[in-house]
Simulated assay, not measured.
Amino acid sequence: MALSREEREGFLAEPHVAALSVDAGEGGGRGPLSVPVWYQYAPGGDVWIMTGRDSRKARLIEKAGRFSLLVDRLEPTIRYVSVEGTVEEVVPATRERLTELAARYLPAEKVASYVEFAWKDHGPQVVIRMRPRRWVGADIGSV
């Protein structure tokens, strides 16, 4: 059963790990780049991710000007949401954004140590903000 707009947006706002896909620009020689990512989203807003400034993912997103995310779950029902859209902004990451993202996925007591490690270890990062343009979502029910 298709999800309503409110259901799609509410599901995407939950802290799922997303599969990010972006055109690899390989001229048919390869499929798109698809990798797991943490993301942030609030209903009605834009989606943002954080990645290495010089990563393959960042370069491909910059070239394509768009990307898609897919999130899903199996319990209590099989549900998924896919969102695709255009890149609206790429800005240097801040420690505050890293903390916000880590707090979405990690237990509170682990956030500070993860942020300290990631800020020092992961190198320069960027925040890429995407405006959702196309949505697909369904709840298949329980099996």
Rank of each mutant, 00 (worst) to 15 (best):
T94D: 09
P92H: 03
Y39K: 04
R53C: 13
T86M: 06
D72G: 12
R30Y: 07
A103P: 01
L69F: 04
V81H: 00
R73S: 08
V90W: 01
F67Q: 01
P76M: 03
W38I: 12
E109G: 13
D46R: 13
K110L: 14
Y105K: 11
E88A: 12
R66Y: 04
A42W: 07
V47H: 04
G27V: 05
V83P: 00
L106W: 09
V22R: 03
A103R: 12
V90D: 00
A103C: 09
L101A: 04
E109K: 14
G29R: 12
A24R: 04
A102G: 10
P107H: 05
V87R: 06
P107F: 02
Y105A: 10
W38T: 13
T99P: 11
S113G: 06
L33Y: 05
R95Y: 03
T77R: 15
Y41T: 12
L69M: 08
T99R: 14
D46Y: 08
W38Y: 07
V35L: 13
T99W: 12
E75H: 11
E96Y: 03
T51R: 02
L20D: 02
G85A: 11
Y41A: 10
I49M: 11
L98F: 02
P107R: 03
I61V: 14
G52S: 00
A108Q: 06
G45D: 07
E109L: 12
E89H: 05
A102F: 02
Y80T: 00
S55T: 13
S82W: 07
E84M: 09
W48N: 04
V111F: 04
E75S: 15
S55M: 08
E26G: 11
A93D: 10
A102Q: 06
R66L: 07
F67Y: 14
R97P: 00
T86I: 10
A24D: 15
S21C: 14
D72S: 09
V81E: 00
E75K: 13
Y80G: 03
A103L: 07
E26V: 14
G28P: 09
P107L: 09
Q40F: 14
V47P: 02
G85S: 08
S82K: 06
Y39A: 06
E26R: 15
K57T: 14
D23S: 12
Q40P: 00
V47S: 06
E75A: 15
V35E: 01
D72C: 00
E88R: 15
Y41P: 13
K63N: 12
G31T: 07
Y41L: 13
I49D: 03
A64C: 08
D72T: 00
A64P: 08
P36V: 01
A58N: 02
L74S: 15
S21R: 02
T99M: 07
E84A: 12
G27E: 10
G31P: 04
R104E: 05
G28T: 11
R97Q: 11
G44S: 06
R73G: 09
L33S: 05
W38V: 12
P36M: 04
R53K: 13
D54C: 03
